[in-house]
Design a binder for these strands. Structure first.
Length: 925
RNA sequence: GCCGAAGUGGCGGAACAGGCAGACGCGCACGACUCAAAAUCGUGUUCCGAAAGGAGUGUGGGUUCGAUUCCCACCUUCGGCACCA
């Protein structure tokens, strides 16, 4: 053996990283002679540092991509940055760094960290969404969508801060207040840009051909929220039509009042003079309603009578019209018919305001219900009553038109010309306007006459100006950047450029296409690349993007298809003999979600605080950290003892034996933490951490760089794949890393061992070969289905077998070499550096990552002996080694001959003997 | 409240076309090596029991020769939605 022979990842990892880079080992090039595989993992936001969660998401995805490559696919596995967004702007305001500087510095740092991971990313295909070369096409897409009626300028509700005079993102609003200033936030209507994603509702509900997790499909289905029902046109006393949507047209005869959303257009006209004052007051109050009020659990329904009436078109009854904020202006028509007898919300409202309740469905024909005596609305099945010619029509529990009563009435409404079948969706159009600087500019121009024009293609991209100044108010600097706003329209008239920028979900809706050709300047992507690589074969990422990103990107692809953006791509596919049918309906064919790594639970320090009680707080002038075992927690007159649960500056919550006590450290308090030398401060006291998401503010982020320094990337990768089920994730714990660390250590020793066979025993050689081939089968199947933890476990088993064989020296050289080479090949996707190093040391051809994946031989993998399990009444009583492949009769005979079994049976004849799977006999006694 | 996922040793987790529960690993215990420690190696490790044996996959019931796996009811945790007419 040569050179330094201890396993030193700090030496071999950079060495191979450089060699692979120099050899362009991971360049993916179009090659029509090979099958392609586009593996994609969600791109990160460049927040500054990669945390362990990124590693958990990316390294198993990388292992799977490497595995596919060894199986003969031409694999594309790109990486980039979702680089626009709010944190960059916050950094600008708080630390006076330009968002661009901040973002690119972070990207630079993260690139280095990503490289240390040992991933097969093709860096020539890196895309950064805040590069003008990228957002040029984001803008171009916007114009295309606009031209085809899929983007429009309309009214939308925003979070508006009166104090800051700016719009806030949902995540900046906590409990109805601005997270930074604590000032209240109101809902306000503003002109905004939207994408008409709702035009695709129906198609987005169809998941045919998608290998996606069921829960994700279900979440999207619920999010879209399709409901079948009917439109019905009521008429106001003035003769104005008031259209409503209802899922229960069969309850029309029970509509005893109507409710409009406070912002409904007809409210003014309907309101009588006598009611005007309270209606106006109610509308003003609703407009002021903050998130806090809208989300309060105890919300009781409120509303006021307009003084106006409407006519129910099915029975000409005159019914009062109310307004109430439980009716949403943004869903359906913003107006409902209220059927208190059969709708819980209407029932609650009717009881509160003493409105009539008329039942029109009863559970069965004989059992009548009395409206005035009802205690809850009846929403179950039954038959229609009080409904003229429809009396007796059965009502089932089915939803929508599948319910005969709903279907019959809806069809009748259409015949009568007062309504008809209708479908409504919960999902709204996608609001993409952001009143922010750090985003892709919306390339619209507002003309003096109020019309809107798009920036001509040859003037794209509309560049974000660099010379901007950030006001502490949070208002977008584009709003007061004269040079940016000032432009001319197509008639040469002065015009104003749109200052809103696009939602960053827009950038990530099409990044999978930009990766194909990030430098391409004739379009968003190069059709020659797209024809080969599209669509994405597997997409991996967090399930938290189930309803936003994953719906948006599906919409985007469908819109691109309908706008003809794939036509050239399709032509090239055909020229290369590839059938393009259905390839542009969905962006990603297969989806796999990994779970989240959560912060580990941590005990807080146990402290003794001495001082005195002042009102509700305990003021301490002396705080010491002590051993929890040494004292009893509790509260005394002059001291509080317990675990530190929470701390904000010098105010602490202490769990004093089940009672939470607020302890405030006096300004000059003496702090003593024995574990930390020198003078101590309150800031050094450790508080309790729950198991929860990692975040910088909670102080529970695990930095992978330190782990890599200590163990090497290979071990960290193997551990991340081994430590939890990938789909599930879990609380981070670093103790178990010893297992994979020993595995790599053993692989190192085995890989460079100079094996000398002693007396070769054929059956022992065969046993090793059997294990080798069984492991190939197991690891292949596991990696195929993303079961990384069991794949690593199988390799550990093979390692155990090899170590045992090495000790005995009884296996042939051929069997040894096959086992060792196989182990390295199987391990290569998981730990790429160490396997490459050992492969080279064993004089195998470079590179291990370009070798063919091993194939198992069923004959070699087959067991020669099996352990026959013998049960009596389902209870295992004996196990016997028998040769494999015996028929059921023989197995049954062997089982009955067993001494143990005979003893238990005591000569009694078994009632029945069942042989299962050739490995188990159950005797029914 | 509604929808979804999941409950298995001290811990992470294996095994589900119904067929040996606890693979693999961590930890722990004992032993070897060492002046000692770390590392390493060996043995053991679901619980009760000295053993024979018994109990055991969140709880209670059911189907079955046989249930962690299927069915019913309930409890707990996590995720999503939450006046959607």
């Amino acid at each position: 053996m040569n050179m330094s022979d201890t396993y030193d990842p700090a030496v071999i990892e950079p060495k191979w990283q450089q060699k692979w880079e120099a050899d362009q080992l991971y360049r993916s090039r179009v090659d029509w002679s090979k099958p392609k595989y586009y593996a994609l993992t969600m791109l990160p936001y460049p927040s500054g540092d990669l945390h362990i969660g990124h590693w958990f998401a990316m390294t198993p995805s990388d292992a799977r991509a490497r595995f596919m490559r060894m199986r003969g696919y031409n694999v594309l596995f790109p990486m980039g940055f979702d680089a626009f967004g709010l944190p960059a702007e916050n950094a600008a305001i708080q630390r006076n760094i330009h968002p661009k500087t901040w973002t690119y510095a972070n990207i630079e740092r993260m690139r280095k960290q990503l490289r240390s991971m040992g991933t097969m990313f093709d860096w020539k295909r890196e895309a950064v969404s805040c590069d003008p070369a990228y957002y040029h096409w984001t803008e171009w897409f916007f114009i295309q969508l606009y031209k085809h009626g899929l983007a429009y300028w309309g009214e939308g509700l925003v979070n508006w801060s009166e104090t800051l005079q700016t719009v806030l993102a949902n995540e900046q609003v906590i409990d109805g207040k601005d997270e930074r200033t604590g000032q209240p936030v109101v809902q306000k209507m503003m002109k905004q840009w939207f994408f008409a994603i709702t035009k695709y509702c129906e198609e987005l509900l169809n998941f045919e051909g998608l290998d996606w997790p069921e829960p994700i499909k279900l979440m999207q289905t619920n999010w879209i929220g399709r409901s079948e029902g009917a439109r019905v046109v009521f008429t106001s006393e003035h003769g104005d039509p008031i259209e409503v949507f209802t899922t229960r047209p069969d309850t029309l005869w029970g509509a005893t009042f109507m409710v409009l959303a406070p912002e409904h257009d007809l409210v003014d006209k309907l309101t009588s003079d006598g009611q005007r004052e309270i209606v106006d007051a109610y509308r003003a109050q609703t407009a002021r309603a903050t998130e806090i009020e809208r989300l309060a659990d105890t919300r009781e329904k409120t509303g006021v009578f307009t003084g106006g009436y409407a006519i129910n078109p099915v029975n000409q009854k005159r019914i009062p019209v109310w307004i109430a904020d439980y009716v949403l202006g943004s869903y359906g028509t913003g107006a409902i018919m209220a059927v208190p007898a059969h709708d819980e919300r209407d029932f609650e409202f009717a009881r509160k305001y003493n409105l009539a309740i008329v039942p029109v469905i009863q559970p069965d024909a004989d059992e009548s219900i009395d409206g005035s005596a009802m205690e809850i609305a009846y929403v179950g099945p039954g038959v229609m009553i009080n409904s003229d010619q429809f009396n007796g029509t059965p009502v089932t529990a089915d939803k929508g038109w599948a319910n005969p009563s709903v279907n019959t009435v809806a069809e009748w409404l259409a015949e009568k010309g007062i309504g008809g079948k209708s479908v409504n969706y919960r999902m709204r159009d996608w609001l993409i306007s952001r009143q922010r600087y750090w985003g892709a500019p919306i390339p619209a121009i507002h003309c003096v006459d109020g019309t809107i024009e798009m920036t001509p293609d040859d003037q794209l991209p509309v560049l974000l100006p660099d010379d901007v100044e950030f006001m502490p108010t949070g208002q977008s600097p584009l709003r007061y950047h004269e040079a940016f706003q000032h432009t001319t329209d197509s008639h040469g008239r002065p015009a104003r450029r749109e200052t809103d920028t696009m939602d960053t979900f827009m950038c990530s809706s099409w990044y999978q296409y930009r990766y194909l050709s990030p430098q391409y300047d004739k379009g968003p992507f190069d059709p020659a690349e797209a024809a080969y690589w599209l669509p994405v074969d597997v997409y991996t990422g967090g399930a938290e993007h189930a309803t936003m990103h994953l719906l948006y990107t599906r919409f985007f692809t469908k819109a691109m298809r309908d706008l003809g953006m794939f036509e050239e791509t399709q032509a090239i596919m055909h020229a290369n003999g590839r059938d393009s049918k259905g390839l542009f309906d969905e962006p990603m064919l297969m989806l796999h979600n990994q779970g989240q790594i959560l912060g580990a639970e941590r005990k807080g320090d146990t402290i003794v605080a001495r001082g005195r009680r002042q009102g509700n707080v305990f003021v301490a002038d002396r705080i010491e950290v002590i051993d929890p075992a040494s004292v009893d927690a509790g509260v005394r007159d002059d001291s509080v003892i317990g675990e530190l649960m929470k701390r904000t500056e010098n105010v602490m919550q202490v769990d004093a034996g089940g009672v939470l006590v607020t302890v405030e450290a006096a300004p000059d308090a003496y702090i003593n933490i024995p574990a930390i030398d020198g003078d101590n401060t309150v800031n050094q006291l450790r508080h309790h951490l729950e198991i929860q998401r990692m975040s910088k503010s909670k102080g529970n982020v695990v930095n992978p760089d330190e782990l890599v320094d200590e163990f090497g990337a290979d071990t960290v990768r193997a551990y991340l794949m081994f430590f939890a089920k990938w789909e599930q994730g879990g609380p981070w714990n670093y103790g178990g890393i010893k297992g994979p660390q020993r595995l790599l250590q053993d692989i190192w020793e085995i890989g460079r061992a100079d094996y000398q066979p002693g007396t070769v025993d054929e059956s022992i050689s065969r046993a090793l070969r059997r294990k080798t081939h069984q492991t190939i089968r197991k690891v292949t199947q596991d990696l195929d289905e993303f079961s990384f933890n069991t794949a690593v476990a199988a390799i550990m088993e093979l390692r155990n077998t090899i170590l045992a064989a090495q000790k005995e020296s009884a296996v042939s050289r051929e069997a040894w070499d096959e086992a060792v080479d196989t182990m390295l090949l199987l391990m290569a996707p998981i730990s790429p550096y160490i396997t490459e190093e050992l492969w080279a040391r064993r004089d195998r051809p470079y590179s291990i990552h370009q070798q063919a994946w091993p194939v198992w031989d069923e004959d070699i993998a087959r067991e020669e002996l099996i352990s026959l399990v013998i049960q009596i009444n389902g209870k295992t009583r004996d196990k016997i080694e028998v040769s494999a492949g015996l028929d059921d009769d023989a197995l049954g005979r062997i089982a009955l001959e067993s001494e143990k079994i005979q003893r238990i049976l005591e000569g009694k004849a078994p009632r029945k003997v069942i042989v299962a799977r050739g490995t188990l006999v159950n005797i029914v006694a």
